[in-house]
Design a protein around this nucleic acid. Structure first.
Lengths: 209, 209
DNA sequence: CTCAGATTGTGAAAAATATCACGACTTATT
DNA sequence: AATAAGTCGTGATATTTTTCACAATCTGAG
């Protein structure tokens, strides 16, 4: 794909920049400096300028960045001009919350299909999102990204079925560390780990940097 | 606090190691090598050895690590011998899911109090966890850690009230980047950002490396 | 008791990320 | 037109994190 890949750390911040630029634009702001952005997204301003610079000279010296231009640039960089469909695997507590929780207000990613093993749930719709049986993964059609919110002991087996059915990116909310071909991208969000790490930092790092 | 702080990247992996060691121990395994651990938690074995080495020589050359010993060591390092109480702020879709979802089966962190502004919710209990009114933050008592699952536009104001009431660590699930004194530790889990970043990686980084 | 095989702990090197600091340029003001 | 103030883009540097690679050491078998 892209030959000159930007640093991963930068890539992970792009959606954050994008969201904040959207806010600014809706507020009618025309220009913004790296310093202002920095205060809003809590990222050092030099880091922001460096991040942007990987895409070329997007700003003007002595002026800052044109909000509309920058927003348009990131919109296409992040493929926000078209809708990206995502599947949710596991309609339990957390999965249901994601279906209801409108966390994608400001972007063009949509959960459009859900899957579960429970016959009580299969066939129903939650917020217009149909729930299919986990054995009907061909229903995924062209979806490439899946959110995993199912019991940890099923994660590995089902992840592999997902891959067989064309999934190439997985956002894994289970504590399991799944084993998939290395061409598949897996991001982990592990609530217990995050909490424990936070507690550890409080005990051992508090105050001074 | 601790004088010789371990690297942050290491600290974030400790809970992961801890959980897996727990699994091993329950399976009755007596010893484990960094290579085995590596395959299970998907972290390079040299990184694991380096991580452990910050705490001294925990293993034996030619043998590996004693599961029980290592587990005990991490238990006390991560303060898992005592319960850490956590408050949940915002009993909406996501918050309710956290109250119900038992993601802390294998550790000693517990959500023990919840707060919300909705009078319908205040006074009730969800899974034995009482819901207090958001104005009754003195009910926090000695709790130091809060999980933020409320509307983004309230995040900043309420985060500051939390800090006034003794909270020193915040796990922020809202898209808002909150402004708090720098002695307060904030970790962000931003679902939309994570998904967008994943999609970006799929488009621009796939396959190699 | 010896030796082959396994595995740690770590110095050193590499890679990735963040930050400093300043020249170059833009804008706005007088 | 000149000048002051603001801000980018980036070379250089600092910091953090990961990885390599191997001597030292332990285990277990015969």
């Amino acid at each position: 794909m892209d030959q000159n890949k930007i640093p991963q750390a930068t890539a992970k911040r792009l959606p954050l920049y994008y969201r904040f630029l959207n806010n600014l634009n809706q507020q009618g702001k025309k220009r913004v400096s790296s310093k202002e952005l920095s205060e809003a997204v809590k990222v050092d301003s030099a880091t922001i300028r460096r991040d942007f610079s990987y895409f070329g000279a997007l700003g003007k010296k002595g002026y800052g960045y044109n909000v509309e231009y920058l927003l348009g640039f990131f919109r296409s960089t992040l493929d926000q001009h078209e809708i990206t469909e995502v599947a949710l695997i596991g309609v339990g507590n957390l999965g249901t919350a994601f279906l209801n929780y409108n966390f994608m207000k400001n972007n063009n990613i949509r959960i459009t299909k859900a899957f579960d093993a429970d016959p009580e749930k299969v066939g129903k719709e939650i917020r217009d999102i149909p729930v299919y049986h986990i054995d009907d993964l061909e229903k995924l059609a062209n979806i490439k990204v899946a959110i995993l919110t199912l019991p940890a002991d099923e994660a590995d087996a089902i992840a592999n079925k997902l891959v067989e059915n064309g999934i190439t990116g997985i956002l894994n909310f289970t504590p399991a560390r799944i084993t998939v071909p290395k061409s598949i991208r897996v991001h982990h969000i592990d609530l217990a780990v995050e909490l424990q790490a936070l507690v550890y930092f409080l005990k051992h790092y508090s105050l001074e940097k």
